[in-house]
Nucleic acid binder design. Structure first.
Lengths: 412, 412
DNA sequence: CAGCTTGCTGCAATCGTTTTCCCAAAACAG
DNA sequence: CTGTTTTGGGAAAACGATTGCAGCAAGCTG
């Protein structure tokens, strides 16, 4: 191989690698020389087709000269290193010589090379994928949760696969199947309900899981315990303090564990406040707008219409609000309403909704953290792990004194 | 290989495959014999570890006896066929003998085998993945769109990768990068704004794209043209018919193409109705609740407060509604409000929002269809393709006669 | 200066599929 | 019974990366 005269500038003690690097560095200053030298070095000339095109349109070609097959091999050839070195460079393995690394990065950037995740995952056995199973994407609570989860995941180099089950077991099983096919490394089951049999598929394959409220007691499982009672007690106390005694509750679907927990927390809190919870004042909703409205209908049919309604989630509360509006009852003058979740839109309902906050961000963070620990250092954990998520009452304007009492105060 | 005595039941003219099949069929009746025969056939006995476990716990073992490495190879060995046959069976290639197929399916089901999508995608070059780029997942419009898109995609064997850009170019470029890494076969850019430079990465790699409203004029690009004017004209006519003349418009972000289109449609419609659009009555929002409220603030500061406000989307309208509530103005008695999108929650605002419907389902269907055609039969299309999406006014209760006029009619 | 250590780099095996090509057996024709 | 076509399954080469291992060069030691 003829050595260009320019290499005489190198220090006398240069290593062979240094010589090569310098040779390369110089060569990059001129595309023509670059490719000529590469030709001499690699003894391959099929890729010289590209440089010709590049020379004819010297200005704005960076976008066009991508060889049809851009893989780690091509990069290796262009940077004049082995594919192993390219791989190591991309993965920032510390043993690669910075000079080589620079050379590789230059080529990678020049050709906008993007490694193929599938190939990577296949050989490394790490898909860097987490599944996120939610019940319905159209409930604003979940998009906010997804947002948080995705942000954190991306920040840590993970991708997420979201699937909405719509409470349909068949759909759920499809979702799980798809996650299995994509080889997710963990799944956050944020459906607020435990569909044990369906999740067997995951458990069998020892996929780390994180649940809300309840989960099977085995290794690789984390549970996010939401402190429903704290927020709900605050809400009941708030109502009781205002003078409410006839307080109704619109629950979520009976099959949903979290809905039952919320209801239980409500009953307990009522007793704590010295009010006997009346089963007739508990209407079953389904965590949707329509369900909330329908449940309110039932409550309105009671001989003594409740002066306050606590709802299992905000969508339900908004449905209740709407039903009250339709009925001509004013909130909070005639009926007080409290929601649960504190979705963003609760701030702008008419009137703004008093609700119990449960931080989507906290939830997402805890879920991701749990999964990540299980995946990246499973040896540090044994058996099931639990995390606590707080809830807090946010007082807005949908709560006030009960109708008929303290009228003088109402007008302010 | 010793042939079990039971094969004497076979018809005299049986093919070799039949003999094998029968042998296998008989063998499956008894797990012990099954594995013994398999052992004789395959001459490998390492996988016999599993059957032993199975024998000791005969009842509920189906869940536990999955060998640690479940791949197509294992299935092939257990079904006593080649991996090629397993692959063909899974992909329902018609040339496989139904008997073999049955045998393979039995094993697959027995062990809950799930093929590895990554390996599949790698070798076939088909990731069966579409990207869905949206602007903000917290705007309920998008979840509804995602839902539709995902449903259709899954139905056709595709998966989707959703990314929310939050209008941030940096985020957007990350999103695109991630999609590239996962080798998406197409991307639906539902951001309602064209960020040309960022999408270069995709265009360069000839990834089929589908845009809303506007898109570069090149092959592989489809555009969903939304007929803003139809719905918006209906809205303006509706207001004009009610007697409104002082009609304001709260636009979306100035940088967003779709927002400009909506504004243009508004101006045009106003002129058509013989009302001169007044620039002072056009406030810029940003398609969020807060933006809507802020814009309404500006409109309230006008010497002559508009009697009707048309909004660029429903979130804006809800923000406007809230601001009006705060100000003490009644809707529609003092001010009429119209939104755009017809998100689900618009039905239950106080009062229910009159809005312009744009079908998420139509949008999703068209977007997916466009992408699919590009991917699966690119030869049938040349250059850019366009699809029309209709819009229609949905009259609810946030619109009424302008204040001060026809009072006698208002009370009904 | 021989011999050992250390630091990098390249070779090659591997991941779990799909798919092409080829060949054996069955079916059919004469 | 022989020759030809049809049928269907198996062997092996991809796909695009990662990674253990081997080996070469330079630095260090005595």
């Amino acid at each position: 191989m003829p050595i260009p005269s320019s290499n005489r500038l190198l220090p006398i003690h240069s290593t062979r690698a240094d010589v090569q690097s310098s040779l390369y560095d110089i060569s990059t200053q001129c595309t023509v020389i670059n490719y000529t030298i590469l030709k001499l070095i690699s003894d391959e000339n099929d890729f010289l087709v590209t440089p010709v095109a590049e020379r004819t349109t010297p200005k704005k070609t960076a976008a066009d000269d991508i060889p049809d097959r851009m893989d780690i091999r091509t990069i290796a050839r262009l940077a004049n290193v082995s594919i192993a070195t390219v791989s190591r460079t991309i993965n920032r393995v510390s043993t690669v010589n910075p000079k080589m690394a620079k050379r590789v990065w230059d080529v990678i950037e020049k050709f906008d090379f993007v490694p193929n995740t599938q190939a990577r995952a296949l050989v490394s056995g790490r898909s860097k994928l987490f599944g996120l199973l939610i019940s319905e994407i159209t409930n604003p609570f979940f998009p906010e949760l997804i947002q948080g989860f995705e942000d954190i995941a991306v920040e840590h180099g993970y991708e997420i696969l979201v699937s909405s089950t719509n409470h349909d077991p068949k759909r759920m099983s499809h979702c799980i199947r798809r996650m299995l096919e994509r080889k997710v490394e963990g799944v956050a089951v944020m459906t607020f309900g435990l569909e044990e049999p369906l999740l067997d598929q995951l458990a069998k394959r020892k996929v780390p899981l994180v649940f809300i409220d309840v989960g099977p007691d085995r290794a690789g499982v984390s549970v996010l315990k939401i402190d429903y009672h704290h927020g709900i007690r605050q809400a009941v106390q708030h109502l009781a303090a205002l003078g409410h005694r006839n307080i109704a509750f619109v629950s979520g679907p009976a099959g949903l564990h979290s809905a039952q927990s919320r209801l239980a927390a409500f009953s307990k809190s009522m007793k704590e406040c010295g009010i006997a919870p009346d089963p007739a004042r508990i209407a079953e909703g389904d965590h949707t707008l329509e369900g909330g409205a329908a449940a309110m209908d039932k409550l309105l049919a009671l001989k003594e219409v409740p002066t306050a309604v606590l709802c299992s989630n905000d969508m339900t509360a908004i449905g209740v609000l709407h039903k009250l509006y339709r009925t001509g009852l004013r909130v909070p003058d005639d009926v007080s309403v409290i929601g649960f979740d504190d979705i963003h839109i609760a701030e702008v309902t008419t009137p703004p909704l008093t609700t119990i906050q449960m931080s989507r961000y906290e939830l997402a963070k805890a879920a991701f953290g749990a999964l990540r620990t299980q995946v990246e250092s499973p040896e540090t954990v044994h058996g099931k792990r639990e995390f606590n998520i707080p809830t807090d009452l946010i007082v807005r304007e949908s709560t006030g004194f009960p109708r008929g009492t303290m009228k003088h105060l109402r007008k302010k």
